[in-house]
C-alpha cells in the first residue's frame, strides 16, 4: 500500500515541487489541495500529459532519463520521485540529477525484499506479482527493482543524507523503522538531501 500522506507530511506548504512521472497529474492536484504547493510535472505518456494539461496543470511531456538537466540548479524546493526510480534507465544518474535540482528530494519505491515477495519467489519459483508490482515479467516497466538495504547502501556510497524515512506494508499499516523494515515493508519513503 502506497501512502501519499507520508510524503505530504514532509512537504512545507507553498513549496515549489517537481513531480517526476506525474502521470495525469492527480498527484499534483492532491498536493495542491492539501499543501497549497506550486506543482510542476514531467511525464513521457502523451495521453496522460494531455489529461494533466486539460486539468490546468503545468506538465511537460518529456523523458526523465534525458530532460532533467535542462532545469537550472536548485530551481525547486522539492523533487518528488514517487514510485518511479525503478523505471529509470539509469536510476543513479537520475538521483544525482534531482539532487542538483532541489535541496531536498523525496524518493519512494516498492521494496523488493518485502516478505510476501520473498515468499512468492521461494514457494512459487516465479517472478512475484503483487498489487504494487502487478506486471508480467515481460511487460514490467520496473526494470531496476531494488530493496531498502540496497537503497541505503547507495545513499551511503553517494554521501546522500537520509533526513527521514518511513515504511508501509500489510495493507496501510506503518511498519516500524526498527522492526526489520526491509523484510516487513512493501513500500519505502525517503526524504533525502545531499
Amino acid at each position: 500500500m502506497k501512502k501519499l500522506g507520508i510524503i505530504k507530511n514532509w512537504v512545507k506548504e507553498g513549496s515549489k515541487i517537481l513531480f517526476l512521472g506525474c502521470g495525469n497529474g492527480e498527484i499534483i492536484k492532491s498536493f495542491k489541495s492539501s499543501n497549497k504547493i506550486k506543482g510542476f510535472g514531467i511525464d513521457i505518456d502523451e495521453n496522460k500529459v494531455y489529461e494533466a494539461i486539460s486539468n490546468g496543470l503545468s506538465v511537460i511531456q518529456g523523458d526523465i532519463n534525458s530532460d532533467l538537466t535542462d532545469y537550472p540548479k536548485k530551481s525547486f524546493d522539492y523533487v518528488i520521485a514517487h514510485d518511479i526510480i525503478q523505471v529509470m534507465t539509469k536510476p543513479d544518474v537520475t538521483i544525482r540529477q534531482i539532487l542538483e535540482l532541489s535541496d531536498k528530494i523525496i524518493i519512494s519505491f516498492p521494496n523488493f525484499a518485502y516478505i510476501k515477495i520473498r515468499l512468492g519467489i521461494l514457494f512459487s519459483g516465479r517472478m512475484p506479482k503483487t498489487k504494487i508490482l502487478p506486471y508480467e515479467w515481460y511487460r514490467s516497466p520496473n526494470i531496476h527493482l531494488f530493496t531498502i538495504k540496497d537503497f541505503k547502501d547507495f545513499c551511503k556510497k553517494e554521501d546522500i543524507q537520509i533526513v527521514d524515512q518511513n515504511f508501509t506494508g500489510f495493507n496501510k499499516k506503518y511498519v516500524s523503522k526498527l522492526f526489520f523494515p526491509n523484510l516487513f515493508s512493501e513500500f519505502a519513503y525517503f526524504l533525502l538531501k545531499k
Partner: peptide, 18 residues
C-alpha cells in the same frame, strides 16, 4: 524552445500532440 524556457525557470507546459 521548451529547453530554453526551462533553463530560465519559466513556468512551461509542453506536449508533442499526436
Amino acid at each position: 524552445i521548451v529547453k530554453a524556457l526551462k533553463i530560465n525557470g519559466i513556468e512551461t507546459t509542453y506536449t508533442n500532440f499526436e
